[in-house]
Nucleic acid binder design. Structure first.
Lengths: 224, 224
DNA sequence: TTTAGTTACTGACCATTAGTCATTTATTAC
DNA sequence: GTAATAAATGACTAATGGTCAGTAACTAAA
């Protein structure tokens, strides 16, 4: 049954090719300004064909986003399986996410679509589920690292690791979003460098969830 | 010149009436699903007339949002001018914002539009400026309270009050957004009550920006 | 090679809807 | 009463997400 397999492979390949085109257009114009006709032209396919592979424009957008999420997952996974200390891993999670924000700004913006009402209203259940699984993978890495940190007595035991995860993540996310949208404004008007503010808040939160032992280790690591 | 004045008043009134209708429709359907025809019908006016008062659908959306922002401003301003201790005021800011989130969820969602790419792309410069001024008023209250807190030695002096403000605000915002979108999911899947998480993270951050004196006072206040 | 059947693709077409503008209606001024 | 001004209208346009009847390409059996 080599033919059937080849066809499946080709279909998969076409799907990816469409995503290549979609990525280009979405990166350039964003979700609302991008048109399906443009994407079709970029993909060298007719518009109708796009709909054979993706249910809607929003679904396609998320298809692209998933690539970005996968990249983030791989970065995180690399941390998870590395052989540095747990504290170091936790710090790395933050650093890597911040680098991700710098290097993959467009993906960062796309990920934010997951938190918009449009996502909950206009996306097919199927795609929602797919996104959910991918997001889950990322959270699993975070959770497992924080759980270890807790087991090792680095993190204050009265909190749930996942809870700490969502706190740290949300905190970074909110400031990054602000940097992305109003960074210049805050610099000009209040002379505040939100990049620095992000470091400050991350450090504040991080220190406040560490045990005494965790803090000692952290101080040693930060001094290096 | 009584007539001219009356006309200005009537025009202003019409603008508000249109916002009444728009608010109803936007609250019900959200920005993208609401149509101008619907709003026109709700306002008992023709669609063309709407455009005599607002430049675009997005501008109108922000007109509605501004009402919500004003309400928040008034709540904040009330705190600012109240005669409780500064520490109490700071805590009140958080509490009031959280209540605002509970009571005016739709407005909360609208405020988030300010952080979306759509806002930066599809809104008239004029409306952007108006929003900016309103937002500014809110920040001014926060800033002035935090500045006082710093002057009184409650807040660690190595930070900028506005910086602390944006940290606290962003932190709350991010978790509220998550509660709004995925609150149920987190409860069901991880058995995490994000409402509680919000309290935790706010407390953590808050404590970590207080001086020793501030913390003593805080402990006293929290025990009451 | 021919033919029937299947799959992939096409692009004209449809429906929706934000925004416009020539025209009509109402109000004011003289 | 009439001219001038302001307010309101709604048919129309343009843009665009999505559809579907028809076409082309490929596969498999005769």
């Amino acid at each position: 049954m080599g033919i059937t397999e080849r066809k499946v492979r080709e279909k998969e390949h076409r799907k990816e090719e469409i995503l290549d085109a979609a990525k280009k257009v979405f990166f350039e114009k964003g979700l609302s300004a991008a048109t399906m006709d443009e994407i079709a032209e970029a993909a060298e396919l007719s518009k109708g064909t796009l709909y054979l592979y993706y249910k809607s424009k929003e679904d396609m957008y998320l298809g692209v986003m998933m690539r970005g999420m996968e990249e983030l997952y791989e970065d995180f996974e690399r941390i998870g399986t590395s052989s540095v200390s747990t504290l170091h891993k936790i710090m790395e999670l933050g650093d890597v996410y911040r680098k991700y924000f710098d290097k993959h700004r467009k993906f960062f913006r796309m990920i934010h679509f997951l938190q918009s009402p449009q996502f909950h209203k206009q996306v097919s259940d199927e795609m929602k589920k797919t996104c959910d699984m991918e997001t889950q993978r990322v959270w699993n890495v975070i959770n497992s690292i924080l759980q270890t940190g807790m087991d090792e007595g680095l993190l204050r035991p009265n909190y749930n690791p996942m809870e700490l995860g969502v706190i740290l993540w949300s905190n970074m996310n909110a400031l990054m979003l602000r940097i992305d949208n109003e960074g210049d404004k805050w610099k000009k008007r209040f002379n505040i460098d939100l990049e620095h503010t992000l470091s400050v808040s991350t450090t504040l939160l991080f220190e406040s969830i560490l045990t005494t032992r965790g803090r000692t280790e952290y101080a040693a690591l930060a001094n290096k």
